[in-house]
Write a protein that binds this DNA or RNA. Structure first.
Lengths: 352, 352
DNA sequence: TATAATAGGACAAACGATTGTGCAATGCAA
DNA sequence: TTGCATTGCACAATCGTTTGTCCTATTATA
């Protein structure tokens, strides 16, 4: 008997009071022992010992809700990401989570689906859950809601995309130099007609890359053909459409610079459909190094970003902001990229 | 003046009491209005209106911590994943999060790094945060801690890997038929010496796939060469090592069945190093369809799993369990796989 | 011996919300 | 005018912790 109940009834939570009552002390004392303040409040060694023992026996585990309500600290951080299924972001997320849990913090994850409205709602939800801080990879076109957060004093770190008018810590890749280097490489290989399939316009990521693209042209004394800049999102479909447009031009550009891993995948479909070969007929460089990059039909030359580092640094920035509350650390960290040379770029005999 | 302070001082939180005081009612009334219980408690229309208006004016947002402490419901679920950077898992995670937020729930994410100990600690942390339920993709070799959860009455849904001795809801792929179909296909293409690079042993995923592998052999009246079953984890390195071993055998197997996307990537490195071509020299089928599968040097024949559906179903199962508390729904859902034919399997002239 | 100092811990008020119950005022019927 | 329902809301406890303060012995000091 009792067996049935024990199956149906949820285990009752053990509280400080339970422990206190069981050994005949006050719940204050128990709290102080279990939070390691025995000395500070002169709890005798004997009592301390007993409290710890019974806490262990009863399997006491502190209620973080109650604790947070009182202390105003949840040890929880919010993470807002435009698309967690994208390995670029999930790698960042992973490293954030790993660092966080090392110090007993948890991550509440929100996927904004590249939608500013959802981003705003997600952030509101996270705030109502009283996260200690926020790491946001913003959709990137609007920043008013982020400015509100900064003003509210809630620690915030922006990753991947940032806003020049937002006074807030961030960690991003050096998109300018990444693009510059890639496009210069195209030039060195004698390419002169280089299409750029861009990502979401009006994001810092995109603007910086375009700036690199333009400066590379400038360095080689070549005017930018504006019609070679196409596209409007970081997704695969945009890559397909962008490539279709570029490949239909005549003369056809000899090279394509793709602004993301998904864009280059989409572009490859278009290239296949047109019966073209990489790099014989068309060269390509893609932003974002991926585990599969070297195994593609033509191993892909890529601009690698430091994803693990991004996550780790973002976390540490946020944590320090949370700890020194009051002093809003607004350092911006820019991580270098690396051009990974493979086989997707053809060396042309003459500048073309 | 005051400007400086407004920058340094965190915005004070608006509480029910603030609202109540401002309009001269009790905080009880405010609570009842804002939780939509005006009628039930006969709050006059006038009062209701005023309360709502001031709540809006003050920008009131309920403190989910306090609410949860009282109601015993956090509207938060825990999600434990062995490796969130793996697109297979991150796709599942994404769909869980999207479904969850649609109904105002949040997801606390934990990455167990394929380590049972970390899995246990993560779960403990989530429990202390009073999640309403748990979705766990277990490392897979131990289930005692999961059994504890089931017994404690905390709603739990297992995904991807399950335990036959665990009475708990789950949603997994039909790994048996997935493997069966793949290996049968090898046989139909006249392969008779088929290596299997397995994942983590003692996981249901792995056992089921091996069972499929064996049954395919049985159906074609062929004994299984146990030395062709190699490997012990789902990672890339294991794929590399496993392939090295298989390729070193003589006679060399004509085909490799890889138990995960990462395993096949690793295997491809080994295959390249040996100077072999897919599928001319060696055929390969990989578990896990990926966005890049069709773009590989040789487009990869894969066993596709329904990742989005897995996430969505897992969430719904958990939600229903949370809502009908008491009746532990222990349905198990098995999702069919699909063999995606591409070019990585060669048709042999004669059974070899 | 009187007094101060110290040791060891208890009380009770928070934190912000929810909720069972109680209470005054009004309306209505008798 | 009395009695009873109904309307409209307030009281106060509660969820589990934390924390400033206060209290009572005991010991040490003068």
């Amino acid at each position: 008997m009792g067996v049935k109940e024990s199956f149906l009834v949820k285990n009752k939570q053990i509280t400080l009071d339970n422990i206190a009552e069981k050994i005949g002390v006050s719940c204050t004392t128990v709290s102080r022992v279990l939070t390691g303040q025995s000395k500070k409040y002169r709890i005798s060694d004997r009592t301390t010992e007993i409290v710890q023992q019974t806490a262990r026996d009863l399997g006491y585990v502190p209620d973080q809700l109650a604790r947070a309500l009182r202390t105003k600290r949840t040890n929880t951080m919010g993470l807002v990401i435009p698309d967690i299924s994208n390995p670029f972001f999930s790698t960042i997320a992973r490293n954030i989570e790993i660092q966080a849990r090392k110090v007993g913090n948890s991550i509440i994850l929100a996927d904004s689906q590249e939608d500013t409205q959802l981003e705003i709602e997600s952030i509101r939800l996270l705030q109502s859950r009283k996260v200690d801080g926020l790491i946001v990879c913003p959709v990137g076109e609007e920043s008013a809601h982020l400015k509100d957060i900064v003003n509210s004093g809630l620690p915030l770190v922006i990753i991947d995309r940032y806003f020049t008018d937002l006074d807030c810590a961030y960690v991003v890749s050096d998109n300018y130099h990444g693009a510059l280097e890639a496009v210069e490489y195209f030039f060195q290989m004698n390419h002169r007609s280089i299409g750029y399939i861009q990502g979401r316009v009006n994001t810092s990521v995109n603007s910086e890359r375009i700036r690199g693209y333009r400066d590379a042209h400038a360095r080689f004394g070549q005017a930018v053909d504006e019609s070679l800049i196409v596209g409007d999102s970081f997704g695969k479909r945009n890559g397909y459409i962008g490539a279709k447009i570029l490949l239909a031009k005549s003369p056809r550009p000899t090279a394509i610079f793709a602004a993301s891993n998904l864009i280059s995948l989409g572009a490859m479909t278009a290239i296949q459909e047109e019966g073209l070969k990489i790099p014989e007929d068309i060269s390509i460089i893609s932003f974002d190094e991926q585990p599969y990059s070297e195994y593609l039909a033509t191993p892909m030359t890529t601009v690698a970003q430091q994803t693990s580092e991004t996550g780790e640094i973002a976390f540490k920035l946020l944590q320090s902001q949370i700890q020194n509350e009051g002093s809003p650390t607004t350092e911006g960290i820019i991580l270098p990229t690396e051009l990974v040379f493979r086989k997707s770029v053809k060396q042309l005999k003459h500048p073309t």
